[in-house]
Design a protein around this nucleic acid. Structure first.
Lengths: 139, 139
DNA sequence: CAAGACTTGCAAACGATTTGCATTTTTGCT
DNA sequence: AGCAAAAATGCAAATCGTTTGCAAGTCTTG
């Protein structure tokens, strides 16, 4: 998604593409893994951006559907850019904390079963995995 | 799991089955849905149990594998008893917040794909669903 | 270019959870 | 049972991530 698109996306919600937002978006799209607000703040090159601004912008980006909030059982949330055509989950190593993407996802296959079982429609889900990475196996 | 078993379970970890723990366990096993520390505290009938004690005990029960911590994108965590032979996820209504169990789970089917993709073993996962419950559909 | 809408920095507030410490309860042994 | 050691508890204070009020700054749109 180009910078142009995110501007449109934001404008559609009466939100503007500010310097801080542009940077946060760049940082998120360039990252291999979901980042914490603190990590994002640390990587900002624009001067004097307040942590509160990072939080506010993450929420704004989340509200317009550009960013996803991820919980990996840590004391904070992580955030990642939602890139079109990708449905991504993650797996975190229980030993070293390394995080990798999981592109295979079978959750949608559960929709029918859920519908039958509880009558709920399945609109969204949250799937994060924990395991042991190659480096940590057999230690 | 009977009270006897949980005592054994705890003793195996040098932990005792105290009055507060017994009650918390009872509350959790009797609940239809995962509860927040605050809800658990509110349901305690033993006198003068401090919130800190609830937190400490939830952690203790989690550490020995009796309780699972659940994140439903709220401002707090929820906890539920891990009953043998049950692998349960949840679906929360995006409209009214109602929570139901989801017993069908296909995540283990992903283990092979994950192994091939990233080399990780899949030890545990975290799957919570969001949708719309029958009552809220068509509103 | 002006008026209103949206953003920001800063400091203070918040809410959930954790911790230090002195006291009480439970355990393990005799 | 009786007791010393270990673990748990209440209470208050502290932490930590995150949110909010407010005044000042920046954008947008006509």
């Amino acid at each position: 998604m180009a910078a142009m698109d995110i501007a449109d996306h934001l404008h559609g919600h009466r939100k503007s593409l500010t310097r801080a937002r542009t940077e946060i978006w760049r940082i998120l799209t360039q990252s291999e893994k979901p980042l914490s607000p603190k990590e994002i703040h640390r990587r900002l090159t624009v001067h004097k951006v307040d942590p509160a601004t990072v939080y506010r912008n993450l929420r704004a980006l989340k509200d317009v559907g550009l960013v996803r909030e991820i919980d990996l059982r840590e004391t904070f949330k992580r955030y990642e850019a939602i890139l079109p055509g990708r449905h991504v989950h993650h797996i975190m190593c229980q030993v070293c904390g390394r995080i990798e993407k999981v592109r295979h996802c079978v959750v949608q296959d559960m929709a029918d079963a859920i519908q039958k079982e509880s009558g709920f429609t399945l609109e969204d889900h949250y799937l994060e995995c924990f395991g042991i990475c190659p480096n940590c196996q057999g230690i």
